[in-house]
């Protein structure tokens, strides 16, 4: 044993390690990965086929019962619909605003200060974001409603009316993520050669034409990646909804299920209704949806292929 190690140390083989060395470097992360990522992932699949109960912390195998139940669960279809509406509103506004910010920053200023300011909301805990906006958007005392009053608009029940709650949460998260998303797009803009814009300017192209004909096509790979990241994140919205709609003794997800997004439904099913088996089945569906969305987007937007080639 000692011989081989000695022999190995002088050769170049041992410099690169091999499992004997790698094992010790990997050991802590392997423990963490196996116990808290891999095992729970597999167990999550198993749980979806059980009627697990948190109180006794045990459950029996019940076959596909949970999945059959999902088919007729109107709460589930409501949650999927609410989440879909949220994602469309959130991603639509967030992406449009972010592209605008990124292009403006690219054309106007390289200032770190400007970028930092817009990154601020992204660093905040979601709970803080929710509390700030619940206060700002309060029906009676909120400053936004006061401002609306100045221009003659009646106060709006932002978080407490069925029609407003999802657009409001979408807007709040757009506020939180627009600077961050803009920064990602801004980084992508830096890869577009300035010579293209010079050529465009010589040919007499306007700013808007250059944006449409040069910026957008060349930004596509970056945009695809950014969209995958933001859409996958957006579908998992939870914190703001749970805090903002659960305020003052209400049950989160209201009013009348109008904001019970899929993550909230899974959480409530698992912990509050004590049906982790059913919750695991729904989250399995979520995993499938997320993978499908990712795959579809990368395919549709032909990510990775730049027109710059």
């Amino acid at each position: 044993m000692g011989e081989t190690i000695k022999a190995g140390r002088s050769g170049s083989q041992n410099i690169r390690g091999g499992w004997k060395v790698a094992f010790w470097f990997l050991l802590p992360s392997l423990i963490g990965f196996v116990v808290f990522f891999l095992y729970p992932s597999l167990r999550g699949v198993y749980l979806a086929f059980t009627d697990w109960n948190l109180l006794g912390n045990r459950g029996d195998f019940i076959g596909t019962e949970n999945f059959e139940r999902m088919r007729d669960d109107s709460q589930l279809s409501n949650s999927l619909w609410v989440t879909f509406k949220y994602v469309v509103l959130n991603i639509g506004s967030q992406t449009a605003i972010s592209i605008a910010i990124a292009v403006m920053m690219d054309r106007l200023t390289k200032s770190q200060f400007v970028r930092s300011i817009m990154l601020l909301p992204w660093l905040m805990p979601n709970v803080v974001v929710a509390l700030l906006w619940v206060w700002m958007l309060d029906k009676n005392l909120g400053v936004i409603n006061t401002m609306l009053g100045w221009i003659g608009i009646d106060a709006i029940n932002f978080f407490t009316s069925t029609s407003w709650v999802i657009p409001t949460v979408a807007a709040v998260n757009t506020w939180k993520f627009m600077g961050y998303t803009a920064l990602l797009i801004f980084a992508g803009l830096q890869t577009i050669p300035g010579s293209l814009y010079e050529a465009g300017a010589i040919d007499g192209a306007t700013e808007f034409q250059m944006f449409r004909r040069i910026t957008l096509p060349l930004l596509r790979p970056v945009l695809a990646l950014v969209l995958v990241i933001t859409i996958v994140g957006s579908m998992q919205v939870f914190d703001v909804v749970n805090v903002a709609t659960g305020g003052f003794n209400g049950q989160a997800g209201g009013p009348v299920n109008a904001s019970r997004v899929i993550y909230l439904y899974i959480y409530q099913t698992a912990v509050l209704f004590n049906e982790p088996g059913y919750a695991a089945a729904i989250s399995l569906l979520l995993v499938v949806i997320l993978m499908f969305v990712t795959f579809l987007q990368l395919k549709l937007l032909r990510a990775g292929e730049s027109d710059l080639a």
């Binding site: 990997l26 992360s29 990965f33 116990v35 808290f36 990522f37 891999l38 095992y39 729970p40 992932s41 167990r43 999550g44 749980l47 697990w52 948190l54 912390n57 998992q236 939870f238 993550y263 899974i266 959480y267 698992a270 912990v271 982790p276 919750a279 695991a280 989250s283 399995l284 979520l286 995993v287 997320l290 993978m291 990712t294």
Partner: peptide, 27 residues
């Protein structure tokens, strides 16, 4: 291969592993 397995963890929504992890804590 092992690195890819690690990376695949990025694809999993947290709530999917939080439920089993909660049960693990009880275990």
């Amino acid at each position: 291969k092992l690195f890819l397995v690690y990376l695949s963890g990025l694809m999993i929504p947290p709530i999917f592993i939080f439920i089993p992890n909660l049960i693990l804590m009880k275990d």
